[in-house]
Design a protein around this nucleic acid. Structure first.
Lengths: 211, 211, 211, 211
DNA sequence: AATGAATGAGCCTTCATTCAT
DNA sequence: GATGAATGAAGGCTCATTCAT
């Protein structure tokens, strides 16, 4: 997982490798806790134990429990968005694109189970500053995605629908399926989602979107 | 630590009307709190204030904060299930039934905004006993629903698909749309979901399900 | 309910002097409270006030009210045992040893009134771990004492009796007398037990034990 | 066990049999609780469950938790005292009397394990009124006992000792032995104290008391 | 006499955060 | 940068007692 120091002024000198490692291990430990216990229930002490560091260290690097939660969340979102955009840029038809969304959603969730699960929780209590960063990230993402799809709508390959229904219609089913898979996983960490299943959802999404 | 057996004997005696009223008002107060603050953040004090009763009363009737959360959850599920079954029994064709599911989901959510929102949260930490009750309720519900749909699948009016994909495919999109509507609503309590929007999702569901 | 593993790793690091002082003052404060109020009635608040520290500090060092009670109890037992063994090692005859037990019991109790009184109470609700520690301490102590007396029994200077009657027969009377003295003391903190009284019990013990 | 209604004015009419039965069952239930949990830890609710009655009933009959504890304690003391006096009145020699004390103590304790254990606890927080009653009972008892023994001291059959050492010297060992037996019993409720053991203590007591 | 819902002071404990070393 | 002792507000919960039915 790629961790970036986002809090520090951009002009600051490069943090040392040891520092980066410590931050990374804290975020990883926090994710394990959030995954197993939930954000609200996880305590600083839990994270400390999991990351094997002192309380002071936690506060030195992230300022607060919410600081850790925010950093982790934003980091996760950026990874997901970047992956999705990369994927879509490699799709050249409406069908490939619609199916690509479903496939990427499915694959990424399976590959990043804990992080995906964390991004679903709506318990993070963002600071105003973090909310701003998220809004910008989301705006940029949505703009990029819409730009990539706009041509297919214009060309008549995809239905024209209210803007806020595209995501539910395309991703809703796989999200719901995935959500159930995630809950199940918390107990039995074994299987992944079978390809034919994934293709069923991809196909359905296209069935709904095509003109 | 001293361990005592805590279970109240399940006496079949009818509770008095006042008792029922108190229980109801506590649950209503709790729902308001959970809706605005989230379960984990809501305190006993909050519920107490909202239900206008003493701490002792809360514990007398529900035993614990989790006890309240469980009761509320189970109550809600049962209301939803009962409504859905009632609705489906009035549908005579595959199309009406599939669309009926989407419509009922949409309408019930709008009519019971707070409760619906609460049922979505996965923060309730169920006791083993509550988990059992829920499992039974769910089993019964799923059985009834499948019974109602089985004939349409058999008659060839609906596609034959893996059992665990029906719900995501039919309800996924409206659920996702609804989820976003719910988040938005927490700030501006005004609008409802417009009929045409509802019908868009109903239509899409049928588009995916028909043979 | 969420379960977390709570055990602090038994790091061998030396605690700082300030830490030791704080622990000591907490135990001293707790003893004063237990002595005056009894364990069950003493509240964390009482101890806090008496030790002049924050609640958090109490829990940081001892984990719980029971933790304090256990530590104090074990500390006291070890002090008593060590003193008794030291005393007995300086006795060279059966008579001196039997009388030595009575004398030490009497003197130690008077010199450590509150602690002695605390060790008599059977309200401490030991954790399994503490019970283990106590069992070990007791086993070692009993072994040492029996070793010291064995020669006198073998040499025929002392009666041969069932093992579990030596303590009651030698210490029973002074213990009972002392117990009453302790109850009395809780109101009027002045006198001590007069030497002749002590010697009466020492003499009686020897009268019962000699062959 | 004989239970007497001691709180009511002496002129009151005889309570009905049902009332007596209820009081008896409450005291019996309370004893079971105190025995297993300790007074301070036992709750009104525990007693209620054990006696199978309502909270209101408890308060109707005894006024408070302490009221129950006091009644039980005083009742027990009176039973013990009465038995001891009865026993001593049947002894005609100093030796028989001294040994009689030890034997009765031993036998009564075994026969009334829970009650004996309860009488040893010093956690009862007596009201001023109860303390008065107890003082009177104790005064009377001590007076009777001393009267019964006085003749043997005068006749030179028993040693002349400080008044407050007779009880410790005679009863101390068997009490201590018994105390340990009682603690042990809480786990394995089976054996009783063997006769030869009892006689060992009886003999030792006489050895110490004879001139 | 019996019942059990209601009350609320007070208890034990947790936990995010600070700060001296 | 790292450490962990210290802090104290706040939370969930218990329980003796009262009182209307």
């Amino acid at each position: 997982m790629v961790i970036r120091s986002n809090k520090k002024p951009l002009s600051a000198k490069q943090p040392r490798a040891a520092t980066v490692a410590r931050r990374t291990s804290i975020l990883a430990g926090a994710l394990r806790c959030f995954d197993e216990l939930g954000i609200d229930v996880t305590t600083i002490s839990d994270i400390q134990r999991e990351a094997d560091c002192s309380v002071g260290s936690l506060y030195h690097h992230f300022g607060s429990k919410e600081g850790i939660a925010e950093e982790l969340f934003i980091d996760g979102i950026q990874q997901f968005n970047a992956g999705m955009i990369r994927k879509l840029k490699r799709c050249n038809t409406a069908e490939a694109s619609v199916k690509g969304v479903v496939r990427f959603y499915c694959d990424w969730t399976v590959r990043n189970r804990a992080l995906a699960s964390y991004l679903h929780s709506r318990d993070v209590d963002f600071s105003e500053e973090a909310r701003d960063r998220l809004r910008n990230i989301h705006r940029t993402y949505i703009f990029e995605v819409y730009t990539l799809f706009a041509r297919y709508v214009k060309s008549g390959e995809m239905r024209i629908l209210p803007l806020d229904t595209y995501v539910p219609l395309i991703s809703g089913p796989i999200q719901e399926y995935t959500r159930r898979w995630l809950s199940g996983q918390s107990e039995s960490r074994a299987s992944s989602i079978p390809k034919p299943m994934r293709e069923l959802f991809a196909g359905s999404a296209w069935k709904v979107m095509r003109t």
